[in-house]
Amino acid sequence: MEHCLNCPVYHSSGRTLLDRPPPEGYTKEWTEVFRHAVVEEYQKSTPVFAFRIEAEWLALPMSAVIEITERKSIHTLPHRSNNVLLGITNVRGELHIAVSLSALLGLERLSDVKPMQSINYRQYPRALVFGHEGEDFVTPVDEVFGVVQYNAKQLAPNPVTLTKTLAAFTRGIFEYKERPMGLLDEELLVLSLQKNYL
């Protein structure tokens, strides 16, 4: 028997298909699904800036990061410069106080960076301008990655392997691309610089 597509028999058969009653329990099943309003927990993530000094990958909340720029020469201050307070340097025409985060955090000096530490193909040392509540400083960093989103829930407590100094300034560790990154406490950093070195 042949039916053409516009045949009314074809039509009504199709209709019957669409109008058939749902199978047993079908309605119930789907009611259940819709009843459980999926409360997607709003995953609040914080943007932080990841960078590397020596062998450590560290991060600062974006609110504390002011600028990343080229490293320029640092002029020492007579009778004042030491391993943490390096001196003054030029950042886009303004003179800033240059400090060594590496020295402040007690990070070990490495002669060369093991290949797995670095993220980028070529490493460009940069100057990081950071600050808290109007007090800012510049510090040289060995490599920068960029902005990373992390979730406060992911923050793990400091492992015992961290040096005491570094641990004091680190809020916690989170993972990014299989690398552990230490989230720094910018408030304490700035406070420490102010109190001890200025």
């Binding site: 007579p78 009778h79 003179l95 800033h96 106080i97 007090e135 102010q194 200025l198």
Partner: peptide, 12 residues
Amino acid sequence: PLDRRLGKVPCV
């Protein structure tokens, strides 16, 4: 002027 946080730097 030098950053005021540095205070008076000797000879500068």
